[in-house]
Amino acid sequence: MSSSTLKKSLKLFTVFFRIGAFTFGGGYAMIPYIEREIVENNKWIKSEDIIDIFAIVQSVPGVIAVNSSTFVGYRVAGIFGALAATLGVVLPSYILIAVIAMFLYNFKEYPFVNEAFYGIQAGVAALMCHVVFKLGKTGIRNGYALVLAMAAFLALTVFGAPAIPVLLAAGVIGLVSMAIRNKNKKEGEENR
């Protein structure tokens, strides 16, 4: 392992440890942290690549938060980066849940736990709202993308569709629309 890989892997571990310690509310809720730490502060990955990574890791087995950490870690520093990021993101939950499993039998009945959680829930909603604005700015640049995004949103929220078929359909739509564009381009050239 080169010294720059070692350095990057150590940095990945601490960054993803922080992300693991503060990601409440599922895989997508870590995007605000990835944006801040990976994209803005360390410039390891570009903002539009984050969307691609989340598209890919959804379609393979496993937990979204862990999979995206593995993926980002691999992209930044190879296999050691993947190991460091994965270990980092899992360790905070491991420590916290081990403590709860060993010592706290009525976790929810402790004072202030519920109230703090209400605040955290509202905070997570705000973080994610902000990230939707940001991703929308880079990822949705035309009407076609806007319609696709709205259709996916409605399929999940209103019709309760699972994510994977929605992604499959979107991939097929992407392929078909490219084929149509290529065909129109070809015909345009022939008519000239």
Partner: peptide, 13 residues
């Protein structure tokens, strides 16, 4: 096709 759909999924959650 996937990119806008993922943004839709994130909005939904």
């Amino acid at each position: 096709g996937l990119r806008p759909a993922v943004i839709g999924l994130i909005s939904s959650s």
